[in-house]
Structure formats: structure tokens, C-alpha cells
Write a protein that binds this DNA or RNA. Structure first.
Length: 218
DNA sequence: AGCACGATTAACT
DNA sequence: GTTAATCGTGCTC
């Protein structure tokens, strides 16, 4: 069964920055069997807004030509661009814009909404070797980061390239009321200190003001 | 064929 | 504030 509120391709077929802002307040859902886990998107980042090269974007590698890793980003909008980083973390993006352009939006944080016990279990550290009961991870830290939310929602590389607009896809974005414009904040993207200016400082990270699940530090 | 490093996180001083 | 964990990718030799 597919919810009628699954966002259609037209939503994603727009410039990355517009989609990144409009994704705030929407719901990211992953169905595994009969279980559903999901959260309200509270933080995003736009990459490769197509006007000119964005050196912070993976698609700018290989002189801006597609590679095995980035090919999905050059494809049609509404598909998942998921990649593995630091040897241990999966990051979830949605392809935006139109085919031929390499645009994407990174989902950096969500607020837990459904199946919270399931998310907590997925995020709970395994007891390392010695039999010491791991202290429960606070709810505030379940999904407040790009790699934390993929772990909590069990999203990984198997969904790389998946069409989120396909009624059969177990991952989708559910429509929800938009966040008022005066509640949206913008600032530089996180974790790209090695990227040259001006791209390093472009304010293409968006979040909901004062939301407790926005990723820490930055 | 080899290598430096990353759209991060958690644990540590 | 600092650093280890951990490995696929893109770039250099």
C-alpha cells in the first residue's frame, strides 16, 4: 500500500535550494515489512544548484563528468543518492532539478515521529565485548545528524538510485504543512572545510529555527 | 598499484 | 577541544 501523500516527482524537479527549503517539515518514511519508521525533516543542505559548478558537490569530481558513484545525481529527480563515507556512515540525499544536471539535497536531521522504539534500538550502541550495559541513548541524539538518521531509519546503500516517487518504493517523502518562512534559517554547509571559496561559505544549509533535532555544533 | 582523505560520530583528555 | 574508527573513491605515479 502506498500513501496518497507520497511527494510526486514534480516536487523534486526544481532547483536544489528550493527543494531543500520546502523539504523542511515534510516526513521521511521507510517501511520495512509491516513496520514504518519516520521523522520530520528539520535540516537539509543543497548541492550543485546547476547554475555553475559547486566544488562542494561530489558531482564536481572527475571534471564534472559522471562516475560510478555520482551517476545517480546526473539522472532524473526523485531518486535517492546514497553514499558511504568515512568508512562507516551512509548519507541520504534526494536528486533534484532535471536529468543531465547534478543537483541533490542532503537530509541532515529529522525529528523522530513513528516507531520511535525501533529507531532507538537501531541507534543503541551494541555492548562492546565486556558485559557492561550500554547507557540508553537520549532521544535527542537518535536522528540529529545525517549518518544518525540513516542508521535510525535503516537506510543504506541498497537504496542507492531507488525511485522515491515509485509507489512501490519502501522509502518516500510524505507531504506535510510547510514551515513558515520566518521559521527557516540558512547558513554555510557543514563538513566541507577543504572546499575552496566561495562554495565553502555559500549559505545552502537550511534548518528549522530552534528545533532540538537540528545537528549539533555548526 | 598505491595513497590521501572524506557532505561523520563517539569517545576521550 | 582532540582523535580514532574504517574503507570506497578519485587522483597521482
Amino acid at each position: 500500500m502506498t500513501p496518497a501523500s507520497r511527494l510526486p516527482r514534480a516536487f523534486f524537479a526544481r532547483p536544489a535550494r528550493a527543494v531543500a527549503v520546502d523539504l523542511l517539515g515534510k516526513r521521511l518514511v521507510h517501511r520495512t515489512g509491516v513496520q514504518r519508521a519516520g521523522g520530520i525533516i528539520v535540516e537539509t543542505e543543497a548541492y550543485c544548484d546547476a547554475v555553475e559548478p559547486d566544488l562542494a558537490c561530489h558531482a564536481s569530481k572527475n571534471r564534472g563528468r559522471p562516475t560510478g558513484r555520482t551517476a545517480v545525481m546526473f539522472g532524473p529527480p526523485g531518486h535517492a543518492y546514497i553514499y558511504f563515507t568515512y568508512g562507516m556512515h551512509w548519507l541520504f540525499n534526494i536528486v533534484t532539478g532535471r536529468a543531465g544536471q547534478a543537483n541533490a539535497v542532503l537530509v541532515r536531521a529529522v525529528a523522530p515521529l513513528e516507531a520511535e522504539d525501533l529507531m532507538a534500538a537501531r541507534r543503541q550502541r551494541r555492548a562492546a565485548g565486556t558485559a557492561q550495559p550500554p547507557s540508553p541513548l537520549p532521544r535527542s541524539q537518535w536522528t540529529n545528524g545525517p549518518a544518525k538518521l540513516t542508521e535510525a531509519l535503516a537506510i543504506d546503500g541498497r537504496y542507492h538510485g531507488a525511485d522515491l516517487c515509485d509507489p512501490g518504493c519502501p522509502i518516500w517523502i510524505e507531504d506535510a504543512p510547510p514551515v513558515p518562512g520566518d521559521r527557516v534559517r540558512a547558513g554555510p554547509r557543514v563538513g566541507i572545510a577543504g572546499v575552496p571559496e566561495p562554495w565553502r561559505s555559500m549559505p545552502w544549509r537550511y534548518w528549522i529555527a530552534d528545533d532540538p533535532f537540528v545537528s549539533p555544533h555548526p
